[in-house]
Design a binder for these strands. Sequence first.
DNA 1: CTCGACATAGACGTCGATATTTTTATTCAA
DNA 2: TTGAATAAAAATATCGACGTCTATGTCGAG
Lengths: 233, 233
Amino acid sequence: MAQDMTAISDRSPTALDVYHRLKADIIRGLYAPQEKLLMSRLKARYDTGVGPLREALTRLIGERLVTGISQRGYRVAPMSISELEAIYDARAELEGLLIRLAIERGDDEWEATVLARTHTLAKVTRVQDADEMLERWDARHQALHDAMVAGCGCLPLLQSRAALFDQAQRYRHLWLRQTVFSEQALAEKQREHQALLDTILARDASAASVLMREHLMTPVPIIRERLQEQGWV
Amino acid sequence: MAQDMTAISDRSPTALDVYHRLKADIIRGLYAPQEKLLMSRLKARYDTGVGPLREALTRLIGERLVTGISQRGYRVAPMSISELEAIYDARAELEGLLIRLAIERGDDEWEATVLARTHTLAKVTRVQDADEMLERWDARHQALHDAMVAGCGCLPLLQSRAALFDQAQRYRHLWLRQTVFSEQALAEKQREHQALLDTILARDASAASVLMREHLMTPVPIIRERLQEQGWV
DNA sequence: CTCGACATAGACGTCGATATTTTTATTCAA
DNA sequence: TTGAATAAAAATATCGACGTCTATGTCGAG
């Protein structure tokens, strides 16, 4: 856990500031799974007191990125192969449901948006080194998937989807770097996205649902391998 | 908002105690939708200070039962017909997915549990007056539904289901009392549960999924009416 | 009458202090 | 060497205080 201080403002950070920073640090793997989060160290790192930290941690517990036991402190939530598989199973099934609903409920404008987002993502065929490029690809990638499911018109389900995505982020982060810097992997992803788009434009809910589930599960073996390399599980 | 003090223990209530009590009060409608939750009054009611209250409220914001804006306090989350419909749509679709997965993945033991829970629920044919009886019916009702979906074997999806259930609770509370004290409504519910059981034991995922979605949506018109009677929307 | 400026009261959010709990280290007995 | 008991150190969770922010009320100008 490197000392990676970033200047914020002169004002004491609010609970919300702290929440965002701590969450980002957990997702990018700054803290190991199950690492003890000592208040004394968090206070120093995030330049705030116990109160705002407890709030941030409470929120992160609700998001299952942190575990806590009364009087015994907080820890980064564990990671495991079985959890990886469960979260991805859940996400695949939910995304399959959402794409089916989107096809049933989405209008022409929705189709147009999905087409546009597929196009802009396909413009990124190489990502090299720079984290900025990686973030650009992923931003477009997420925008495409968000657009695909947005046609479902069901906010509570989209909220559930977002919660599962948060839980998957630590795992997904392990896959992202490996995939995005490989032209071959990017090309494969592009083929999958095009196939998805075809089923969507054909309004073939059944095929789209199946393809989407498969698409969502493709990172799992890669992440499994990475987890085992890292010795975290 | 009646003054309804319940003695706890001599110890100052923890954030967890406060969370549970405040949540229960919100769900049962002690506070109106969008009612301002002033710290001064919460401190008096729940016999605790700002810190634990902020934690409890943070958690309830995460569960969408409370809204909060920095420096402007907390409010009970609003209720609306459109939200009612969205939450129930989400729950119906998710429950349909979960019952399909359960049928695909559930074993004989799962079937046996669903059968048993259907049986114990059917034993309650009349509920009169006493809240205790109402709670008994609903405990068995929830146990049945929990058993039905448990066969899906996907914890993250069950967690999403629970989160949606929490959001539905305020609305559902409005339906519960009206339904449970009517023998006719109980009989109708029993028929629906039996039909669901039949499709489950027949391992007919498609029929079960359709029936489950319809079953989940049956409270919506009743709740809509109740909301309009109460003038909350 | 309306709008803007200003002052005040009320409320919010964080801090340092403190009581309580847990963890760690040490000692002793079997 | 192991396990239990004890003390001390470390850590946790809540409290009251206080600076900051927002809501409300009043006044004056147009």
